[in-house]
Amino acid sequence: MSMNEQPAWDGRTYYNEPQLRAAPFNNALVGGYIFLAGLSGAAQLLTTVMDATRGPGAASTTRRGRYLAMLAPTVGALCLILDLHTPQRFYNMLRLIKPTSPMSLGSWVLVGFGVTSTATAVLQFAADRLRGSRLRGVARITQVPAALAGAFMSTYTASLLSATSTPLWAAAPKSLAVRFASSAVASAAAALGLGERNDRRRRDLDNLAVAALAVELAATLASEHAERQVGIDDGGKQSAGRAAVPLVLLLTSLLLPGFLGRAVSTLGSVAALGGGLAMRVDTLTEGDTSARQSHRSLRFAQPDNLPRA
Protein backbone atom coordinates (compact mmCIF):
# COMPACT_ATOMS: atom_id res chain seq x y z
CA MET A 1 0.00 0.00 0.00
CA SER A 2 1.51 3.32 -0.92
CA MET A 3 1.51 6.35 1.30
CA ASN A 4 -1.47 8.05 -0.31
CA GLU A 5 -3.71 5.02 0.13
CA GLN A 6 -3.16 5.10 3.89
CA PRO A 7 -6.12 6.26 5.97
CA ALA A 8 -5.41 9.73 7.37
CA TRP A 9 -4.15 10.11 10.91
CA ASP A 10 -7.03 10.61 13.32
CA GLY A 11 -4.84 12.56 15.74
CA ARG A 12 -4.61 9.81 18.33
CA THR A 13 -1.22 9.01 19.85
CA TYR A 14 0.22 6.00 21.63
CA TYR A 15 -1.01 6.77 25.17
CA ASN A 16 0.65 10.19 24.83
CA GLU A 17 4.05 8.51 25.11
CA PRO A 18 6.79 10.53 23.36
CA GLN A 19 7.57 9.45 19.81
CA LEU A 20 10.96 11.14 19.81
CA ARG A 21 13.71 11.58 22.33
CA ALA A 22 14.69 15.08 23.42
CA ALA A 23 18.36 16.03 23.10
CA PRO A 24 20.20 15.09 26.30
CA PHE A 25 21.92 18.48 26.39
CA ASN A 26 22.34 20.68 29.42
CA ASN A 27 20.52 23.67 27.99
CA ALA A 28 22.34 26.24 30.13
CA LEU A 29 25.75 24.94 28.99
CA VAL A 30 24.86 24.41 25.33
CA GLY A 31 22.73 27.57 25.15
CA GLY A 32 25.62 29.43 26.79
CA TYR A 33 28.03 28.06 24.19
CA ILE A 34 25.77 28.98 21.27
CA PHE A 35 25.53 32.50 22.66
CA LEU A 36 29.28 32.84 23.24
CA ALA A 37 30.11 31.31 19.84
CA GLY A 38 27.88 33.92 18.19
CA LEU A 39 29.18 36.77 20.33
CA SER A 40 32.85 35.92 19.77
CA GLY A 41 32.52 35.02 16.12
CA ALA A 42 30.63 38.17 15.22
CA ALA A 43 32.90 40.32 17.43
CA GLN A 44 35.93 39.09 15.48
CA LEU A 45 34.16 39.82 12.20
CA LEU A 46 33.02 43.34 13.22
CA THR A 47 36.45 44.11 14.64
CA THR A 48 38.06 43.17 11.36
CA VAL A 49 35.62 45.39 9.46
CA MET A 50 36.29 48.18 11.96
CA ASP A 51 40.06 47.77 11.57
CA ALA A 52 39.79 47.75 7.79
CA THR A 53 37.70 50.94 7.67
CA ARG A 54 39.03 52.98 10.60
CA GLY A 55 42.55 51.60 11.06
CA PRO A 56 44.60 52.79 14.06
CA GLY A 57 41.96 55.43 14.86
CA ALA A 58 39.71 52.74 16.29
CA ALA A 59 42.52 50.87 18.06
CA SER A 60 40.72 50.72 21.42
CA THR A 61 37.59 49.15 19.86
CA THR A 62 39.67 46.69 17.86
CA ARG A 63 41.55 45.66 21.00
CA ARG A 64 38.33 44.95 22.90
CA GLY A 65 36.90 43.02 19.97
CA ARG A 66 39.93 40.78 19.77
CA TYR A 67 39.80 40.02 23.47
CA LEU A 68 36.04 39.48 23.30
CA ALA A 69 36.63 36.87 20.59
CA MET A 70 38.53 34.78 23.14
CA LEU A 71 35.31 33.93 25.00
CA ALA A 72 34.26 31.11 22.64
CA PRO A 73 37.54 29.18 22.49
CA THR A 74 37.94 29.39 26.28
CA VAL A 75 34.69 29.55 28.28
CA GLY A 76 32.63 28.32 25.32
CA ALA A 77 34.79 25.27 24.66
CA LEU A 78 34.72 24.45 28.38
CA CYS A 79 30.89 24.55 28.33
CA LEU A 80 30.90 22.06 25.43
CA ILE A 81 33.31 19.68 27.14
CA LEU A 82 31.35 19.84 30.39
CA ASP A 83 28.17 18.99 28.48
CA LEU A 84 29.62 15.67 27.22
CA HIS A 85 28.49 12.61 29.13
CA THR A 86 32.04 11.25 28.81
CA PRO A 87 34.08 14.49 28.92
CA GLN A 88 37.47 12.77 29.22
CA ARG A 89 37.04 11.69 25.59
CA PHE A 90 36.42 15.21 24.26
CA TYR A 91 39.32 14.86 21.80
CA ASN A 92 37.37 12.21 19.85
CA MET A 93 35.52 15.19 18.33
CA LEU A 94 38.59 15.56 16.11
CA ARG A 95 38.85 11.93 14.96
CA LEU A 96 37.31 12.76 11.59
CA ILE A 97 35.59 15.41 9.49
CA LYS A 98 31.99 14.54 8.63
CA PRO A 99 30.11 16.86 6.25
CA THR A 100 26.73 15.41 7.30
CA SER A 101 27.36 16.38 10.93
CA PRO A 102 27.27 20.07 11.83
CA MET A 103 28.69 19.08 15.21
CA SER A 104 31.75 17.61 13.50
CA LEU A 105 32.13 20.62 11.19
CA GLY A 106 31.55 22.96 14.12
CA SER A 107 34.27 21.31 16.19
CA TRP A 108 36.76 22.02 13.42
CA VAL A 109 35.49 25.57 12.95
CA LEU A 110 35.92 26.12 16.69
CA VAL A 111 39.50 24.84 16.49
CA GLY A 112 40.26 27.06 13.49
CA PHE A 113 38.63 30.07 15.11
CA GLY A 114 40.39 29.34 18.39
CA VAL A 115 43.86 29.14 16.83
CA THR A 116 43.52 32.25 14.66
CA SER A 117 41.73 34.32 17.31
CA THR A 118 44.24 33.38 19.98
CA ALA A 119 47.08 34.33 17.64
CA THR A 120 45.42 37.67 16.93
CA ALA A 121 44.77 38.38 20.62
CA VAL A 122 48.32 37.41 21.62
CA LEU A 123 49.78 39.63 18.87
CA GLN A 124 47.57 42.48 20.06
CA PHE A 125 48.73 41.95 23.63
CA ALA A 126 52.39 41.87 22.59
CA ALA A 127 52.10 44.80 20.20
CA ASP A 128 50.60 46.92 23.00
CA ARG A 129 53.71 46.28 25.09
CA LEU A 130 56.53 46.29 22.51
CA ARG A 131 56.69 49.72 21.09
CA GLY A 132 57.23 50.13 17.35
CA SER A 133 56.94 46.42 16.63
CA ARG A 134 55.60 44.94 13.42
CA LEU A 135 53.31 42.62 15.37
CA ARG A 136 50.34 44.92 14.81
CA GLY A 137 50.68 44.32 11.09
CA VAL A 138 50.79 40.55 11.61
CA ALA A 139 47.60 40.76 13.68
CA ARG A 140 45.91 42.55 10.78
CA ILE A 141 46.67 39.44 8.70
CA THR A 142 45.68 36.76 11.23
CA GLN A 143 42.40 38.52 11.92
CA VAL A 144 41.16 37.77 8.39
CA PRO A 145 40.91 33.96 8.69
CA ALA A 146 39.66 34.48 12.24
CA ALA A 147 36.86 36.72 10.94
CA LEU A 148 35.88 34.18 8.29
CA ALA A 149 35.77 31.40 10.88
CA GLY A 150 33.84 33.85 13.07
CA ALA A 151 31.11 34.10 10.45
CA PHE A 152 30.60 30.33 10.67
CA MET A 153 30.77 30.42 14.47
CA SER A 154 27.82 32.86 14.49
CA THR A 155 25.51 30.58 12.58
CA TYR A 156 26.56 26.91 12.35
CA THR A 157 24.86 26.19 15.68
CA ALA A 158 21.48 26.78 14.01
CA SER A 159 22.33 24.19 11.35
CA LEU A 160 23.32 21.85 14.16
CA LEU A 161 19.87 22.12 15.70
CA SER A 162 17.98 21.99 12.39
CA ALA A 163 19.82 18.83 11.34
CA THR A 164 17.87 16.82 13.93
CA SER A 165 14.38 15.37 14.10
CA THR A 166 13.28 17.74 16.89
CA PRO A 167 10.18 19.36 15.32
CA LEU A 168 10.72 22.92 16.49
CA TRP A 169 14.34 23.02 15.26
CA ALA A 170 13.63 21.20 12.00
CA ALA A 171 10.49 23.17 11.09
CA ALA A 172 12.18 26.31 9.78
CA PRO A 173 15.91 25.76 9.15
CA LYS A 174 16.41 29.01 7.24
CA SER A 175 14.71 31.38 9.65
CA LEU A 176 16.40 29.70 12.62
CA ALA A 177 19.77 30.30 10.96
CA VAL A 178 18.89 33.93 10.23
CA ARG A 179 17.81 34.39 13.87
CA PHE A 180 21.03 32.94 15.26
CA ALA A 181 23.20 34.88 12.82
CA SER A 182 21.50 38.25 13.34
CA SER A 183 21.36 37.77 17.10
CA ALA A 184 25.11 37.04 17.06
CA VAL A 185 25.83 40.30 15.23
CA ALA A 186 23.46 42.20 17.54
CA SER A 187 25.13 40.87 20.69
CA ALA A 188 28.63 41.53 19.34
CA ALA A 189 27.69 45.11 18.41
CA ALA A 190 26.02 45.54 21.80
CA ALA A 191 29.03 44.16 23.71
CA LEU A 192 31.45 46.38 21.76
CA GLY A 193 29.11 49.35 22.17
CA LEU A 194 28.92 48.87 25.95
CA GLY A 195 32.57 49.72 26.49
CA GLU A 196 32.81 52.33 23.75
CA ARG A 197 33.83 55.80 24.96
CA ASN A 198 33.99 57.31 21.49
CA ASP A 199 30.48 58.64 20.87
CA ARG A 200 30.55 58.30 17.11
CA ARG A 201 31.71 54.70 17.15
CA ARG A 202 29.15 53.87 19.83
CA ARG A 203 26.40 55.27 17.63
CA ASP A 204 27.68 53.28 14.66
CA LEU A 205 27.63 50.11 16.73
CA ASP A 206 24.16 50.90 18.06
CA ASN A 207 22.94 51.48 14.51
CA LEU A 208 24.35 48.14 13.49
CA ALA A 209 22.73 46.43 16.49
CA VAL A 210 19.40 48.01 15.52
CA ALA A 211 19.71 46.63 11.98
CA ALA A 212 20.63 43.16 13.28
CA LEU A 213 17.79 43.16 15.81
CA ALA A 214 15.32 44.18 13.12
CA VAL A 215 16.45 41.22 11.02
CA GLU A 216 16.15 38.95 14.07
CA LEU A 217 12.65 40.20 14.79
CA ALA A 218 11.54 39.57 11.22
CA ALA A 219 13.09 36.08 11.25
CA THR A 220 11.40 35.29 14.58
CA LEU A 221 8.02 36.16 13.09
CA ALA A 222 8.90 34.06 10.03
CA SER A 223 9.76 31.10 12.31
CA GLU A 224 6.46 31.38 14.12
CA HIS A 225 4.64 31.51 10.81
CA ALA A 226 6.48 28.39 9.62
CA GLU A 227 5.59 26.55 12.85
CA ARG A 228 1.93 27.28 12.24
CA GLN A 229 2.26 26.16 8.64
CA VAL A 230 3.66 22.75 9.54
CA GLY A 231 1.10 22.41 12.32
CA ILE A 232 3.39 22.23 15.35
CA ASP A 233 2.73 25.67 16.81
CA ASP A 234 1.86 25.17 20.48
CA GLY A 235 -0.03 28.44 20.65
CA GLY A 236 2.27 29.35 23.51
CA LYS A 237 4.29 32.34 24.40
CA GLN A 238 5.43 34.92 21.95
CA SER A 239 9.19 35.16 21.69
CA ALA A 240 9.43 38.33 19.64
CA GLY A 241 10.04 40.47 22.75
CA ARG A 242 13.59 39.18 23.12
CA ALA A 243 14.57 41.16 20.01
CA ALA A 244 11.88 43.86 20.18
CA VAL A 245 12.79 45.24 23.63
CA PRO A 246 16.47 45.98 22.88
CA LEU A 247 15.46 47.18 19.43
CA VAL A 248 13.13 49.83 20.86
CA LEU A 249 15.65 50.85 23.54
CA LEU A 250 18.52 51.27 21.09
CA LEU A 251 16.36 53.15 18.61
CA THR A 252 15.26 55.50 21.39
CA SER A 253 18.86 56.03 22.49
CA LEU A 254 19.81 57.13 18.98
CA LEU A 255 17.22 59.92 19.19
CA LEU A 256 18.27 61.11 22.63
CA PRO A 257 21.22 63.44 23.09
CA GLY A 258 24.14 63.26 25.51
CA PHE A 259 24.05 61.44 28.79
CA LEU A 260 20.45 60.28 28.43
CA GLY A 261 21.23 58.73 25.06
CA ARG A 262 24.24 56.91 26.51
CA ALA A 263 22.23 55.59 29.45
CA VAL A 264 19.42 54.21 27.28
CA SER A 265 22.01 52.78 24.88
CA THR A 266 23.62 50.93 27.78
CA LEU A 267 20.22 49.54 28.78
CA GLY A 268 19.51 48.50 25.20
CA SER A 269 22.89 46.80 24.84
CA VAL A 270 22.40 44.83 28.06
CA ALA A 271 18.92 43.85 26.87
CA ALA A 272 20.34 42.70 23.53
CA LEU A 273 22.91 40.51 25.28
CA GLY A 274 20.39 39.08 27.72
CA GLY A 275 17.86 38.55 24.93
CA GLY A 276 20.46 36.76 22.81
CA LEU A 277 21.33 34.35 25.60
CA ALA A 278 17.68 33.78 26.51
CA MET A 279 16.76 33.16 22.86
CA ARG A 280 19.34 30.36 22.61
CA VAL A 281 18.41 28.68 25.90
CA ASP A 282 14.66 28.99 25.19
CA THR A 283 15.10 27.58 21.68
CA LEU A 284 16.75 24.52 23.22
CA THR A 285 14.11 24.10 25.93
CA GLU A 286 11.13 24.63 23.64
CA GLY A 287 12.68 22.23 21.12
CA ASP A 288 12.97 19.55 23.80
CA THR A 289 9.30 20.04 24.66
CA SER A 290 8.28 19.70 21.01
CA ALA A 291 10.24 16.43 20.80
CA ARG A 292 8.50 15.02 23.87
CA GLN A 293 4.99 15.85 22.64
CA SER A 294 3.97 13.09 20.25
CA HIS A 295 0.96 15.00 18.94
CA ARG A 296 3.43 17.57 17.60
CA SER A 297 6.14 15.23 16.34
CA LEU A 298 3.63 12.95 14.59
CA ARG A 299 2.00 16.01 13.04
CA PHE A 300 5.37 17.27 11.83
CA ALA A 301 6.05 13.89 10.18
CA GLN A 302 2.92 14.00 8.00
CA PRO A 303 3.43 13.72 4.23
CA ASP A 304 2.28 17.32 3.62
CA ASN A 305 5.47 18.46 5.37
CA LEU A 306 7.80 16.43 3.16
CA PRO A 307 10.22 18.61 1.20
CA ARG A 308 8.97 19.14 -2.32
CA ALA A 309 10.94 17.00 -4.74
Binding site: S101, T155, A163, S165, P173, V178, Q302, L306
Partner: peptide
Protein backbone atom coordinates in the same frame (compact mmCIF):
# COMPACT_ATOMS: atom_id res chain seq x y z
CA UNK B 1 4.34 8.46 8.69
CA UNK B 2 6.77 10.55 6.66
CA UNK B 3 10.06 11.06 8.54
CA UNK B 4 12.84 13.05 6.88
CA UNK B 5 16.63 12.92 6.67
CA UNK B 6 17.92 15.68 8.96
CA UNK B 7 21.23 16.14 7.09
CA UNK B 8 19.28 17.48 4.11
CA UNK B 9 18.56 20.60 6.16
CA UNK B 10 22.23 21.55 6.65
CA UNK B 11 22.89 23.23 3.31
CA UNK B 12 19.84 25.56 3.24
CA UNK B 13 20.40 26.47 6.86
CA UNK B 14 24.11 27.23 6.47
CA UNK B 15 23.48 29.24 3.31
CA UNK B 16 20.82 31.39 5.00
CA UNK B 17 22.97 31.93 8.10
CA UNK B 18 26.14 32.85 6.23
CA UNK B 19 24.21 35.18 3.92
CA UNK B 20 22.80 36.97 6.98
CA UNK B 21 26.20 37.37 8.65
Amino acid sequence: RAPTRPANRIAPSLAAGIATV
